[in-house]
Structure formats: structure tokens, C-alpha cells
Design a protein around this nucleic acid. Structure first.
Lengths: 243, 243
DNA sequence: TTCGAGGCTTGTGTATACACACCTCTCGGC
DNA sequence: GCCGAGAGGTGTGTATACACAAGCCTCGAA
């Protein structure tokens, strides 16, 4: 594997797993030494992270780990609603119904996975990822799939804010099952609606749990895509409204 | 300005303006010499292009200008519908109504801009860009704005396929005016619907004009985002269905 | 004591050199 | 005559050195 790939994967994991906190300055020399690569591949890794929105290039200070805040969370979920509702709708039109029916049944049985023996809930999250993957395959749209993929990186990072308890995960499993069921029935509007419901509940859950976040005022500006030379709006985002 | 920025901007323009055709191999040494920069900043430029989806990294052959085909166009417009409908909806909820009312009126008067003295239709496209910009400002969502911005690069490239005539542009202006009007009224569902109508008409227009495209079979795989190591699906996309 | 200017230090931006991998062409063997 | 292996060449991947810009600390003057 290329050194730049290793550096990218390592930094990406460190950010998603919160080993690198938001606001951390990613000095080229420092990170290059830490990861055991030279500055050239590290710069490529930083460029990819910046393009993905996990890091932000700041004038003079170099690249810093991008901020995550409740304010940005509303924005993130608005984009998520746009993409995932569309994806669910397309999957309902094009997907393999049997596959989604099977996923629905497994999701309905998911509460059994939430045992004390799996504190990481890895089995549950694997099942949710399987649904994501099935939707990806069903929509047959590279642009949309890759946008979703880019979004999921941010969502994995945000998951640490959610502090999902067993009750919430049971509810989420039911919501996922509803989505899978709607897709299995080929009911596109229902699939989109079920997705909207699920996202709304997810966001409300995170908001109810996480009232305060570190550094809500220092907005380094989130980014979900490469932005050539683009304005980073410092204003406060409004309340997200789903409907 | 940094050399990498210059290289990026230059290559980006060359691709969007079709001076670099799809499938063109962007050799590092060759392009570095052509643009008068060293390989290091050029590699950064190529990485940004690849992240944006204008170029695709191919194993062994380096980076090539990504392909554009009618098949991919349907996928692109599906993503566009997801993002722009959401954006229009949010703008209707949050936008400055007077601003959009003014835009609506100017768009209704836009057919007067389509004179023979402006074969590039630059005034018209500037007005359309102004609507985009107003929506961007109104939605107050950095994630969504940047996703839209990334999309517009591809749309500018595709515009060359559209061969918009005056009749189509007059119709498009009316559709844009409908969108602006719905936003001005604060009617979110109507704004989304008007956007869906406009996109559907745009896509159908392009399809009706461009039946055949160069190299529809050699699918180098489009990408609208950075993709770490991601599957490029070779299958043919289905018909886009809007509504 | 405070403000400003200048030098130092740190870090990014760029160029270039080197290593390695893959592709290709050719030659030899079957 | 065809297939395979090896050598050469092209091009990417990586490391490193150098230049420059920005920030900071310090020293001097008001």
C-alpha cells in the first residue's frame, strides 16, 4: 500500500475515532514523523482529508481537524436527508425486493443483538451498514453513492456524540426496518418518508443527549466536499426542519 | 497565488471547457511542463481534480480526464434533483423574500437578454448563477452549499452537450422564475416541485439533442467526490425518474 | 510601561533527485 | 511460429533540500 494511503487512512481513523480532537493542528512535519512517512505523501493525505471535510485548511496555521458542533449537525442532517431520502426512493424503484425484505426481517430481530456482551454494538452497526450497502447497490448511481459515502465518514465521527443507548438503538432498528420494508414493497414515497422520520428521530436524540459541545463558538467551518476557493460562512445556522 | 492553485484552476478550466477531452491522460511530467510548474504542485492539483470527480485515477495509467456520457447524465441529474430540491425548499423557508421576488422579476424579463449580440448567453447565465448564489446564501447550510458547488462544476462541463437554443433558454428562464417565485412566497413544497420540473425539462432537452455521445461504452467511471478505494460500478444506469 | 520595529524561528510551498513498479519490446527456446 | 522470460524504458511514489512567508519574541525608544 502506498505511504500516502496509509497516512490518509491513519489520520482519517484518528479523526473519526476522536483520537484527534476538533481544532487539532495537523502540522506537516509533526504528523509526517508520527506516521513515519515523508512530507510529500502526508500532504496528499491532508489534501484528501481537506477535500472530505474532515480537516480544514487555515491560513497561516496550516491544516486543522474540522470542528463538529450541534449547529453544524443540523446542517449535516439536512444534507443527509436530501441524499438518503432520494437514495431510499430510488432503491424502492430499483432494488431487489427479496434482499430488502430479508434485511427488514433481520432488522426486526436486531434488538436481540443488543446484548451486554457487545458493548460496542458492532453487530448492530454492521447490520445497519449492510442496509446502507444494499441501498448503495440498489440505486445504481455512482454520483449519489459517493456523496453518501462521503457523508458517512462524518456520520461515523458524529456517532460519538450520540451516546446511543439500547433503547434508542432498538427504536432505530425499527425505523431501519420500516425503511427496508418500504423499499421491499417498492413504495418509493414511503421509503423516503420512513427515512425522513428516522433521520429526524436520530437528530433529535443526539440533540437531547448532547446539549453542550466543546467549543461551540470557534467555528472552523465544516466542509463535506472540496471547495476550490469558496466562502466559509461564519453565520449561525438555523434550526433544521424536516418535513 | 500558489502554483498548485494555478495548476488546478488551469486544468479545471481546460476540462470544463472541453479543451481536455474525456479520456485524456494527464501525465504528471507532461502537464507539469505544459503549465510551467513542478510535479509537486501539479500532483496536488490532480488530487483535487480527482476528488472533484473531473479526473479519475487509473491504476498504472495515472490520472485521466473523467468520462461524460448520457448514461452518467441521468445519475448526475438524480443527485442534482436531491440537492437542488432540498436547497430550494430550505431557501423558501429561510430566504429573503424580497430578494427572490426581485430575481423572479428579472428572470421573467430574461428573454430580452437572449439577443443575437450575445451568442455566449453570458448575461443569461450570469442571471442564472445569481439565482444559484441567492439560494446558496439563503439555505445557510455549508454542507449543502459545498455539495451544490461541486455539482455545478460538472454541470458547467455538461452544458456543452446541451446546445441550448434560444427557445429552450426562454423556457428555462420561465422555470427559474417559477422557482424564484415559489421561494419568494415561502412555499417550500412548490419551490421543490418547480425545481424538479425544471431539472426534468433540462435533462429531457439534453437527451433530445444529444442522442449519441463519443465513447458511450468506455466508462472510466464518474466520481463526484473523493473516493478512497471505492468500487466503480460498470453497469448501465437506469432511466432517471423524477417526481 | 507600552508600542513598534526588526530579526529569528517555524512551517508551508516548491523543486528536484532517486527508487521502484509496471509496461513493452525483443530475443531465445520449445 | 508462438509463447515466455528478461531487459530496458517510462512514469509514478517518495524523500529531501531550499526558498519564502508569517508569526513571535525581544530589544530599544518614546
Amino acid at each position: 500500500m502506498k505511504a500516502s494511503d496509509r497516512a490518509y487512512a491513519s489520520l482519517r481513523d484518528d479523526i473519526v475515532e476522536w483520537r484527534l480532537a476538533p481544532g487539532t493542528v495537523l502540522g506537516e512535519v509533526e504528523q509526517a514523523e508520527r506516521l513515519g512517512v515523508s512530507r510529500t505523501p502526508l500532504r496528499e493525505a491532508l489534501a484528501r482529508l481537506t477535500a472530505e471535510g474532515l480537516a480544514t485548511a487555515q491560513r497561516g496555521r496550516g491544516v486543522v481537524v474540522s470542528d463538529v458542533s450541534l449547529a453544524h449537525l443540523g446542517e449535516l442532517f439536512e444534507l443527509r436527508e436530501a441524499l438518503e431520502c432520494k437514495a431510499a426512493s430510488l432503491a424502492a424503484q430499483r432494488g431487489d425486493r427479496a434482499r430488502f425484505a430479508a434485511l427488514r426481517d433481520r432488522l426486526l430481530a436486531a434488538p436481540a443483538l443488543l446484548t451486554d456482551e457487545d458493548p460496542q454494538r458492532s453487530e448492530y452497526y454492521a447490520l445497519a451498514a449492510e442496509l446502507d450497502s444494499a441501498v448503495d447497490g440498489a440505486i445504481a448511481n455512482t454520483y449519489l453513492s459517493q456523496s453518501l459515502e462521503g457523508l458517512r465518514v462524518h456520520l461515523a465521527r458524529v456517532r460519538r456524540l450520540a451516546k446511543d443507548d439500547a433503547a434508542r438503538l432498538r427504536q432505530a432498528a425499527a425505523e431501519h426496518a420500516a425503511i427496508a420494508g418500504a423499499i421491499a414493497e417498492g413504495n418509493a414515497p414511503l421509503a423516503a418518508a420512513a427515512t425522513a422520520v428516522h433521520l429526524n428521530n436520530s437528530l433529535n436524540h443526539i440533540k437531547s443527549v448532547q446539549i453542550h459541545l466543546p467549543r461551540p463558538e470557534d467555528s472552523t467551518g465544516p466542509a463535506v466536499r472540496t471547495v476550490p476557493t469558496h466562502s466559509t460562512r461564519p453565520s449561525a445556522p438555523r434550526e433544521a426542519s424536516h418535513g
